[in-house]
Design a protein around this nucleic acid. Sequence first.
DNA 1: CTATTTTCATGCGTCGTGTGCATCAATCCG
DNA 2: CGGATTGATGCACACGACGCATGAAAATAG
Lengths: 322, 322
Amino acid sequence: MKIDIDGIQAFVLVAELGGFHQAAEKLHISQTALSRRVQKLERYLGLKLLDRTTRSVALTSVGRDFFPRALRLVDDLSGSIARLQDMSRASSGDVVVACVPTMAYQQLPGVIRAYAARYPANRVRVLDRSGVQIVDAVRSGEAELGIGLKLARNPDLVEQTILRDPFVLYCHKDHPASRRAALSWKALAEFDLIAISGTSVNRALLDHRLQRHGIALRGRFEVEHPSTAISLVAAGVGAAVLPAATLLRGSFPDVRRVTLEHPLISRTIVQFVKRGVTLSPAAEAFHALLRRTIVSAGAGGIDGRRASRDLVVSRKRPDDRD
Amino acid sequence: MKIDIDGIQAFVLVAELGGFHQAAEKLHISQTALSRRVQKLERYLGLKLLDRTTRSVALTSVGRDFFPRALRLVDDLSGSIARLQDMSRASSGDVVVACVPTMAYQQLPGVIRAYAARYPANRVRVLDRSGVQIVDAVRSGEAELGIGLKLARNPDLVEQTILRDPFVLYCHKDHPASRRAALSWKALAEFDLIAISGTSVNRALLDHRLQRHGIALRGRFEVEHPSTAISLVAAGVGAAVLPAATLLRGSFPDVRRVTLEHPLISRTIVQFVKRGVTLSPAAEAFHALLRRTIVSAGAGGIDGRRASRDLVVSRKRPDDRD
DNA sequence: CTATTTTCATGCGTCGTGTGCATCAATCCG
DNA sequence: CGGATTGATGCACACGACGCATGAAAATAG
């Protein structure tokens, strides 16, 4: 019932090299051992595969029949094995990351660029979805890594903070607030604010936090997507309270960022994986890279690289479903 | 450098059955051993293939990747092995037999019929060639078995007599010789004989043997092929000296066979194989069957069965290149 | 909420099997 | 005819795989 792959490999090598000695050398075993391997295989099969005179070796008709198949088997096998070992050694393979759109469009491209530079053979697939869908994707195994807002305690996920993204005020450089280094939330009352509509998770989070401090934001304008809000800000319509990471440095020269304090409110971006699952080497490498990259970039977010800027301006439907 | 097929099989089974216990049972080993096999494979690959909680087993992403390939490998392997074992157990496989035309058309069909009945799955290929080509075919391995005239001592072939085919006189039932049970060669002088042309190996053999007894055959008519000679005999033209096996019993009702003696001269048909080579089980079975069949049929040859008769009358170019 | 059962991992002693060394038998070559 | 090469065999040994007993963790039952 037991398959003798050593015997088959031995047979193949002897047949290929036309002798036990050469084959034994190639396998780094003694001729004795090799001889017995073939004997064992033949005994097991009940067939003679090789006709051996004391001087030379020749395939029997059965052996001739078996040889090509045996060769393919051995090759397939060692090929697959080699590929797997390589996968482990070089952290190669494919990665699927589920990510909220904001991050996917603004922070992630830089990380992916670094990852691609380091692991040129690896492919990365990004699922840009909304928060719950990301969790589902990770839970189901569709994605190995998830990136999104810090969630309610989730026992079957293991999360790790990669970014604390403070809510700030974005305003035009001519806006009165632009001269201030920081503002308190209360002070916002005097400005016309552009608000994100209540369906946004960001907005919900913000309201919830502010509520604990007895503060309620009132928007004069309301839009659905942060990028729309930014556009309005750039046009001088008003100021907008948004996560800092919404705007990549440099993309809107006329827009200024003003810190909002008392209290400092941040949304926390985390990466998470399913508890108990082992990441593929490729995903593991991505995970590590993401952690290091974001941490070193600090809470202000990564600088917008050209790649990410391009992505941002070409966005078809920028939204904040996270 | 060593491939761990047991580990792969273990992995496949655990993944298929979703647990170590079930898999261990199926492999008839303890759960302990199975557990260690998978561990060893993983250590060897440097990868985790299975995420095992103490309660259940799940594939890692790498494992999911590897599983289909592993499955195919194991299946291919055990499939090939099984086929080979079957080949040995059931003497299955293909046979190539090189055979002189006379035998191929007259004696062999019966043997093949018996062989086909006994080994329904096996295919038989007959190379009907002349004497030297048969030897070459066996030498080169193109055919495993050769059937032909006994040859000059051939050190690299092993031969075995399967038929002694005496030269006899074939004559029409109205021919004066037909009433005799036997004739001496000398007595032939008084008859008009149909001779086979000198290029025939049979004729050469015959002349050579007769020469030692100071006898020379003189033909009034000369043809090239035995079957033509038979036709002439049937037409009452004359009598012909031919190997007994040339005519299958019953195919020419009006033709009689008369034994020729003083001396009895036979050609010897042998089957031979290359020295030192191991026959495939299929060929081995054919070899054994051929020996038993012919021996039991005796020197007179096998009765013509319908199959062989049909073959004979439909022959496009009956000759005696043997 | 504890007890039981199930499931996978681990420590340990044992046995099997594959291995190498030395040697033999047969063939090739000078 | 003798040395060299090639594959097979006898023998002793050691590594490794195995099973048993046990442990840890988690699902299930009462």
